[in-house]
Amino acid sequence: MFREMVRYFMAIGVVIGALAVPVMADHIGDAEKGAKIFKKCASCHRVGEGATHRVGPHLNGIFGRPAGGAGDGFRYSKGMIRAGNDGLIWELDKLEAYLENPKALVSGTRMSFRGLKSHQDRRDVLAFLRQYSDNPADIPEASPTAAPPEVVLSPETLALVGDPEYGEYLANECTSCHQRDGGDAGIPSITQWPTEDFVIALHAYKVKIRVHPVMQMMAGRLTDEEIAALAAYFKDLE
């Protein structure tokens, strides 16, 4: 579990490092290798001429597409539609974070894929997919395709076990909006999440890879301990 989290934080590192020098599109990765790796995805996703939605949506023109498809006819999960409404656009950094661990970016996504653990594999697949995005020249090159340095956060920070009592106090802020009984009309439920998912989601808001402005603000001032404490509290809330 902690390994997975460390890997996730490498993905976050991607974002933190996104200010690096712009690189051209074809430097994302090796598209030919990517075509082979894409076989793992092809049981659910099609890409290329005439591709249609299958178990998952087709991936033509995925770069720059809003999450939730903006009415492309695919039946997306509630979580994906919410992320799209919040403003998630599939740019390179977001796609990479999603491929690394889908749930880090979109809670409740139906993409039940464990994630591509190798940074290079992700880049290669994305280089492959990039060929099917209508007009690569129009895709902003600077931040989305920047080559990120990898930042690894210390495993100790990630191994924090939260104090549920402190979490209960901190949770008072959450329950002004999120319903304690798990109701999820308009605002998602945050009770009974697996700890890692909760921690991951809050860190993703904190570094602003998730886009909701209220949540960016709320998570922005939580320390690592506080996030762990909240996760510990909400996990067991009936």
Binding site: G84, N85, T175, S176, C177, Q179
Partner: peptide
């Protein structure tokens, strides 16, 4: 429009959360 609609729906969720609180 989608964001504005989501924002309205959020306010409905907030009302439920707030009054329960």
């Amino acid at each position: 429009a989608a964001l504005r609609k989501a924002t309205y729906e959020e306010s409905v969720g907030w009302y439920a959360g707030m009054t329960a609180d």
